[in-house]
Design a binder for these strands. Structure first.
Lengths: 242, 242
DNA sequence: AGCTCATGTGAATAGTGTTTACATGAGGCG
DNA sequence: CGCCTCATGTAAACACTATTCACATGAGCT
């Protein structure tokens, strides 16, 4: 078996060569399997094929390892959100919803990172690097909210962008956290988490005075103020209430 | 009912007398101190003043202890929400918002229970008793959403109550989870979590076609359909956007 | 009283976290 | 080239936890 890296590189002897990275990957895999509390420092070491004491050369303790993973997670999260936002192209509203889907997709595709970031108990505010990375990720959501807030139709009070960002983030995190991953420890849903979030965000935006249908209403050439603020059908499809 | 010892001094002999309860309380205190992953079975035993093997007479393992705490948490949660809802008195909308505040208050006042319920990794669906308790708590939110959905103004499509309940729950949980507790591991906010949730719910309800101001609009004697569906000012106060 | 069994103890086994002294070998320097 | 040095990994040791076992205690029943 490959209890050492029997890859391209000539078989590693005494020295691993890239243990820090290997430990991060090993921990990531273990978190994905059993949750952020479901692995031990020794597990990570064994999974990387080194002795239990080796990780201490690279991380002060397990928390520092988790914090490193969380930081890397925030960086990837920021990249994903930035790409989804795409500076608001082709139009602000659809880009905004793309960010929401990207949020859920990240939580679903990278549950290990997401757990480390939000559910591992890592104190974000204590570590400046981690805190800054988290702030950069949130800044994407906030920037999107700013652009969206600037689009409020005339005659409607403009909402504070920060509050909007916090609301959207909270709903996204709540959905991801409660229903996002098929951990078998989560609750069943009558719809996909993505649909639930999209409907929620659409209703929320309508509550702020945005027109509800998906006409691009290209902000570069704003057509006219909406004449019917409450359209007849909502964003939740055609099912009637029970 | 006299199997109890004389409820006098905690003069404990060989037998504790109420160890199961004492272990639950001890674990609750430890969770409040160091999080749901921050205590051990032996810690709970020591904290209750018994030997490390004693807890095994009452709980199969640590997870069962956590599950018991989560179950008790869901029961208290249900009680708190039921009381806040008060069957929709005096009017549905204000009772609904009272439920939202009660949600946050529970997360804030009982962080140990809340952690055990939502952040401890306890598989809710596996344990029927736990699952049922969780379901009963959610049923309160859902029942409130049903009543609210029945109040949609005429001419507005009625939203599915389950979806409403899921949206409100998600936002409540997201806010509680991200900003709810002053754990020093949480993010700073420019407003209270309660205000953030209340504003979010009001905006959301307005998006569903509900009138936004707090006139009771007593559902028993519905006055008239709203003539101005988008009121001039929003629920977020008087601050203008940046 | 005497019995019985739920409840708690102490000891034993196994695994983990963490520290410390030691081993290895890659790269710099003569 | 040979030697030195230090980052990196190992082995051993200690403390703590999880879990189970045989055994002790005493509360409540008959």
């Amino acid at each position: 078996m490959s209890w050492r890296k029997d890859h391209r590189r000539p078989e590693r002897g005494y020295h691993h060569g890239n243990l820090k990275e290997a430990l991060l990957q090993a921990a990531l895999g273990l978190i994905a399997e059993k949750g952020p509390a479901g692995f031990t420092f020794a597990d990570a070491a064994r999974s990387a094929g080194v002795s239990p004491a080796a990780p201490y050369r690279h991380f002060r303790d397990r928390d520092e390892l988790l914090a490193s993973i969380a930081q890397r997670g925030f960086e990837q999260f920021e990249a994903v959100l930035t790409k989804a936002w795409d500076d608001g192209r082709p139009d602000t509203v659809s880009a905004f919803e793309r960010v929401g889907r990207a949020y859920l997709a990240f939580a679903r595709n990278e549950p290990a990172y997401y757990s480390a970031m939000f559910e591992s108990g890592v104190p974000v505010d204590v570590n400046p690097m981690l805190s800054a990375a988290s702030e950069r990720a949130f800044a994407i959501i906030r920037a999107a909210a700013e652009r969206l807030a600037a689009l409020t139709p005339p005659g409607v009070a403009r909402p504070p962008a920060l509050m909007m960002a916090l609301h959207i983030w909270s709903m996204s995190h709540g959905i991801a956290s409660l229903f996002g991953r098929g951990d078998a420890a989560r609750r069943k849903l009558p719809m996909s988490a993505e649909d639930l979030l999209e409907a929620g965000v659409l209703i929320y935006l309508r509550g702020l005075g945005f027109p509800a249908d998906r006409k691009p209403s290209d902000e570069a050439a704003r057509p006219e103020p909406p004449s019917e603020p409450v359209p007849p059908r909502g964003p939740w499809g055609h099912k009637s209430a029970t």
